[in-house]
Design a protein around this nucleic acid. Structure first.
Lengths: 197, 197, 197, 197
DNA sequence: TATGAATGAGTGTTCATTCAT
DNA sequence: AATGAATGAACACTCATTCAT
């Protein structure tokens, strides 16, 4: 944060982060707050404290800002690289741990953007689908490892994984949109009971 | 005031419907398809086959179209009046029946609108909250009636009801946004197992 | 004010004055307050508590409302019929009396309208011109009668009359627009001194 | 920032002026001619030969065009800096000279705008008030200097200054609105007589 | 006489985008 | 890389006016 010395020193270096980052930061905040359509490029530039024209220097079209945001600030790859940890015999604890490890937790703003814009932008929808799929696969794998005896058939396990995934991913949106709070740990416990002894 | 039944029934009825209804129909389709912000009043008028000015005759502001849609085409009241049916000893069947009876099923378009715009419009968010609350209350009551022995504590029952409500309401969005399909009947079964014998 | 019994009794008779009068009242208030251009016919109708269509029943075009207002509520004729009273030897008192007798005093709203719209509407300008001319003629005649000895030449007397007329007619506008208050009596005294011994 | 003197002087200069100036020129002409409300931004742009959008680049709101016009083209500051010249013993000549020196004379269009829009726009009204106040102060001071013997009391002197100010400022409006021409020199003479020997 | 739905041109304003510098 | 003037299509909304009833 103190002086980004990787760039050549110059008068234009005022402000903490470089222009491109500031633009993305501003866009992230605005898209989360009011939606993509309602956030003008001028406003993004204003909030980023860069001239209007510069936005188009880095991102030829407005939609590229959204696409870049989703590409660079949604950690699907990081998620995939993380090992699945499971405690055999404790499916509830295993799911809870999975929930807590999700890098998803990092940016509430990105999650709002992801859900809101998935509805109308294919590339965002694809990203959300991959994210969901990744979490689903890990939940299923975790449950398989936690229940070595393979109690309950495969179909039920999938339903359990899908339900947990939905609650996990939508969690925050759910509570901000409907006012209904759902505790992932409690759901993990519920699911464990359904699959358990 | 509405006297639409005086026209001959049939597909041709759509063109014969009065202007206000046609405007709402057009708006519903467009809002669901591309979102509120991206649907211009001119386009709504065009699709409804009415002059631009008439939209503002009925709805002084664009937002009033959305509010009216949510007010008139989201059956919260109808939902409340419906009795809760339960089969004692069969929580899974009880939840499944509840799901099938939901007037919510009527309009996928309205549900998309509800979720998308709740993010940015308070009045829509409130409506969605009420709808969610109503479904939650009915799910909990249904489970109470289906499990007369009060097996499992109250807290667990609430988590079960909340989880089922979330899956039920979000169901369609979930599958269109993430590609993940969740079958309410299977979730009902899962939850019944968690609470049941 | 209690029941305008000159019309045939009917259900539509609610409200004190008849519709046409209410429309003119509303227009007078609005035109004075925000100007002709900024007062929509819909707003006039709203304030008059009559349906929009009715305005056009009485006044085929919006401009007719203004023209009618100026025609019916600007008392040029009444002014002309009034005799010129003068006190020989007391020009100051004579002018002061003239000022006090002016029916002009009746409606500040109409005077605002007259000055504002004269700038852009010929018919209003003509009316204002006639009004000014009438006051000027009476001021000159009053001064002639008050100064029988014809002291001072005719040209000076005309300047005096014109100056007094300007102050008199513009008086209220002047003080509301510039914050400068000019007392007609003091000006009458000043002018008398200029013409007097 | 303004560098208009780099172009060749002459009538062709108007087309060469920068866009902002052309917009203000066009607005000044239109506002004076038909009033602020009746002059659309599209028309202003058309007359200035600039695209509609550019008007809003320089003036975010239409009202800003009016405010800027009043700010930049009404010489209150210039007026204040000018010394008050007086010829002791010749109040009539002193007032006449004051009238002739008024930079006010420069733009008849601005004066029409000032009076017309003061009625409905506070910022314009304030400007007109300041202008009137400035002229009044100068007229009073000029009379004090021209009449060193302090003939006539202070109150009379103020009435004289106010009357002359009104005639001077309103002069042109008066003649265009009412058809009545008032010659400032003649009024100066009248006032001098009222105060003088 | 009274009414409000209907109409479409026009209004102020926003916007993504381009481009010369 | 950086800048802000320039552009014109599109936007939400207003309006005087018409007209069938």
């Amino acid at each position: 944060m103190p002086m980004d010395s990787s760039t050549t020193a110059g008068a234009a270096d005022r402000g903490a982060a470089n222009a491109r980052t500031r633009i993305l930061d501003a866009a992230e905040a605005l898209f989360a707050d009011r939606g993509y359509e309602a956030s003008s490029t001028a406003r993004i530039a204003g909030r980023a404290q860069v001239p209007k024209g510069l936005v188009f220097h880095y991102f030829p079209q407005k939609i590229d800002v959204l696409v870049t945001l989703v590409d660079e600030r949604t950690f699907v790859e990081e998620l995939r690289e993380q090992p699945v940890e499971a405690v055999p015999g404790d499916p509830a604890g295993t799911l809870s741990r999975l929930a807590r490890r999700l890098p998803l937790h990092a940016s509430p703003a990105m999650r709002r953007i992801l859900f809101r814009e998935a509805d109308t932008h294919r590339s965002v929808r694809e990203r959300l689908g991959r994210l969901n799929g990744e979490v689903f696969l890990r939940a299923r794998r975790a449950l398989e490892l936690a229940l070595p005896g393979a109690r309950g058939d495969q179909a039920r396990l999938e339903v359990a994984a899908a339900t947990f995934t939905a609650v996990l991913i939508y969690q925050e949106n759910l509570s901000s949109l409907t006012g209904q709070h759902v505790d992932p740990d409690a759901v993990a416990d519920l699911i464990a009971r359904a699959l358990g002894a």
